[in-house]
Design a protein around this nucleic acid. Sequence first.
DNA 1: CACCGCTTTCCTGCTT
DNA 2: CAAGCAGGAAAGCGGT
Length: 347
Amino acid sequence: MLSDLLHKLTCGLFAGEWYRHISPLCWSTENVLEWISDHVESTNFDARTLSLACCSMDGPALCTMTRDQMMGVFGPQLGLQLHQSLQEHKAKYEMQSFSGPELNETCQLLDHFLDNLNFPLLSTIRIGQTEGPESRREFDFRDDNDLSSLSLEPVMPWGDSEYLSDNQSDSEFSSSSNSGTFGFSNLGSPESGSCESDPEFSYPSISKVHIKTEKEECRQKRPRGRPPKTSRENSNSFYETQKKNKHAPRGTHLWEFIRDILIHPERNQGLMKWEDRREGVFKFLKSEAVAQMWGQKKKNSSMTYEKLSRAMRYYYKRDILERVDGRRLVYKFGKNSSGWKMEEIGM
DNA sequence: CACCGCTTTCCTGCTT
DNA sequence: CAAGCAGGAAAGCGGT
């Protein structure tokens, strides 16, 4: 089991090594496994001597292990190397403490989003099982591996299976893993069901029949404005859990969310980029992916770039954003925005 | 409970 | 033609 997993890891199915871009405290169980597998490979450690149980821990749990404990579990050579590596990773991310709680939240969201989009095989794979059209997000993979009979449910580290939208069934996903960036794929437009232009990225497609019926239903029945949230939508989510455990951070607005992604370049590769750092001009590279993240943050599983962009356009009036004419997906921070200037963040 | 700010959703028309 | 942009209209949601 573990060796199979490690084999998959080392064979590149999960290539990308995103754990390198995340604090060990944010590592999921999958990140920990990936990290271990990298060291197994480099030390020629015999993975068969490891049990899955001893590797099955998330980042926070891993961080509580002492060097001796690691050497006990993984042996003197691998254990020592893992311990040293962990200390290096921890030190690296302790340096990034300038970020406030909101930024941390955004980055955690990004980390989790990246983790889960890019480790589909570690997610729950369901075969022919449904619990109603809205109770489950299923991704029907129609790629060349002939996984058409499988549907995949991303499993969020916080147990939120609603990470991706109902409308996501209109979008296309895949586990692109060799892009050189975080491997972010585009979420296709809900209207078109197609991808954005970048051919490097693609998502496995969803059943077209499903798309059509759901879409038509929406067209016929849906009144204007935002529909009321159902209790189901709120249940068992990461944010609900957060709310119970600690007060949700207040005042995180869309423009702040965007800003936080932009000022953490090592975490947003492929998502957004600065066009003119000093002027505050930026561009969406993976617009639908950013919209999905925003939707996740707002517990809204049907967020799209179309809707996100409408909210962005409202910022023009308030001078939080300025128009950039003639350039698609390009926006500029306005005089009522803050926290993105190089001086402000100590660059 | 009313009000308000901030979205969210939908839509039509226009531009790229 | 598709994708993106613009902005009106209506409504939800959380905070006060």
